[in-house]
Simulated assay, not measured.
Amino acid sequence: MPRLHRSLPPPGARRPCALTIGNFDGVHRGHQAILAHVREAALARDLAPSVMTFAPHPREYFALLAHRPELAPTRISGLRDKMAALAASGIEQVILQRFDARLAEMSAQDFIARLLVQGLDVRWLLVGEDFRYGHRRSGDIALLRDAGARHGFEVATLADVTDADGHRVSSSEVRNALAVGDLERAARLLGRPYQISGHVTHGRKLGRELGYPTLNLRVTPRCAARSGIYVVRVHGLGEHALPAVASLGVRPTVEDDGRVLLEVHVLDARMDAYGKLVRIEFLQHLRDEEKFPDLHALTEAIELDARNARAYFAVHGL
């Protein structure tokens, strides 16, 4: 995993770096192209390949500030999955910068001087061609290049990455695909199946009583994936992936607290997995979440879901 700094690294931990800046939600194919350039530039210049990202997402911060939470973007991935994807792209250092009133009101010049120059010792910077920063997004590429000439860092830009149809690969497109359960399109945009990882927690054990014990995982708030029933693969419980069926949602038949949970039933296997870190790969959306009149109707639906999942694996394999 990359080294995670939840604020600017202290002077003793500061390394001259090649940096890119963004939210990197999902770390999709467009992000991966950016990160490949950062890695190559860092290697050529003996710098630390680094990413600065923000928590919360700036759009979430301003949505909540305006009392319009519905305008906050959903989240493709939690921090653990984001860090794993950044590690797979060769990033060694991640700065998780808190996006708050101080940062929102910081001038573009101070953003460069305090964060990039003094805080991170940036020597090479890659941003998108439309990158804006500072109070009211007043900073642009021209200001960055001028500051780079004065402070000794290079500035490079990268055009958007597009898919086979010429459409921009973006986190918004991934969110749109996940919102309608289009896992094939999400996987094409991400360059891998959509996945959620987490530690298995104790639940109410209702699934065990119904004959379908589940692995329970907490889900990042405002998860971008559509609520419903999925065919999934489970990694982390053995040498090979395991076939499973999963429910992502609020469990309206048995709960009313509105909390989203991922429940995974591994097909034809029983095991003690509490506390283990697992990774769930989403393969196919079977149906939307429903509220059933009673537990008997719920059990019948689960039986059908398990049969449909087995049919999927019989055709596609693991």
Results as ranks from 00 to 15, higher is better:
residue 1 M to D: 02
residue 3 R to M: 06
residue 6 R to G: 02
residue 12 G to A: 12
residue 15 R to K: 06
residue 15 R to G: 00
residue 20 T to E: 01
residue 22 G to C: 10
residue 24 F to L: 03
residue 35 L to N: 06
residue 35 L to D: 08
residue 37 H to R: 14
residue 38 V to P: 10
residue 41 A to M: 01
residue 43 L to D: 05
residue 43 L to W: 00
residue 44 A to K: 03
residue 45 R to Q: 09
residue 46 D to H: 13
residue 47 L to D: 09
residue 48 A to S: 06
residue 48 A to K: 09
residue 53 T to C: 15
residue 55 A to T: 15
residue 56 P to W: 09
residue 61 Y to E: 03
residue 64 L to C: 14
residue 66 A to P: 13
residue 68 R to E: 09
residue 69 P to F: 15
residue 71 L to E: 09
residue 75 R to N: 05
residue 75 R to M: 01
residue 90 G to M: 06
residue 91 I to T: 09
residue 92 E to M: 01
residue 93 Q to M: 02
residue 94 V to D: 08
residue 94 V to L: 12
residue 95 I to R: 01
residue 99 F to H: 03
residue 105 E to G: 06
residue 105 E to S: 13
residue 107 S to P: 15
residue 107 S to R: 12
residue 119 G to W: 14
residue 131 F to Y: 14
residue 133 Y to D: 05
residue 135 H to C: 14
residue 137 R to A: 06
residue 138 S to V: 09
residue 139 G to L: 00
residue 144 L to D: 01
residue 147 A to C: 07
residue 148 G to C: 10
residue 149 A to I: 00
residue 152 G to Q: 03
residue 155 V to N: 14
residue 157 T to G: 15
residue 161 V to L: 11
residue 163 D to H: 06
residue 174 V to C: 04
residue 176 N to D: 00
residue 181 G to H: 10
residue 188 R to N: 10
residue 189 L to R: 02
residue 194 Y to K: 04
residue 196 I to G: 03
residue 198 G to S: 07
residue 202 H to F: 02
residue 207 G to N: 08
residue 207 G to K: 06
residue 208 R to S: 13
residue 211 G to H: 04
residue 211 G to R: 07
residue 211 G to M: 07
residue 214 T to H: 03
residue 220 T to E: 07
residue 220 T to A: 03
residue 220 T to H: 00
residue 224 A to I: 08
residue 225 A to H: 12
residue 226 R to H: 06
residue 228 G to C: 14
residue 230 Y to K: 11
residue 230 Y to N: 13
residue 234 V to N: 11
residue 239 E to Q: 07
residue 240 H to V: 15
residue 242 L to P: 04
residue 247 S to R: 12
residue 247 S to G: 11
residue 248 L to D: 13
residue 253 T to G: 05
residue 256 D to Y: 00
residue 257 D to C: 04
residue 262 L to P: 15
residue 269 A to W: 15
residue 272 D to N: 08
residue 273 A to H: 10
residue 274 Y to N: 03
residue 276 K to S: 14
residue 279 R to H: 05
residue 281 E to D: 13
residue 282 F to M: 02
residue 284 Q to D: 01
residue 285 H to K: 01
residue 285 H to R: 05
residue 289 E to N: 13
residue 289 E to F: 05
residue 291 K to G: 09
residue 301 A to F: 07
residue 304 L to T: 04
residue 308 N to R: 14
residue 309 A to C: 04
residue 311 A to Q: 15
residue 316 H to P: 06
residue 316 H to D: 01
residue 316 H to M: 08
residue 317 G to M: 15
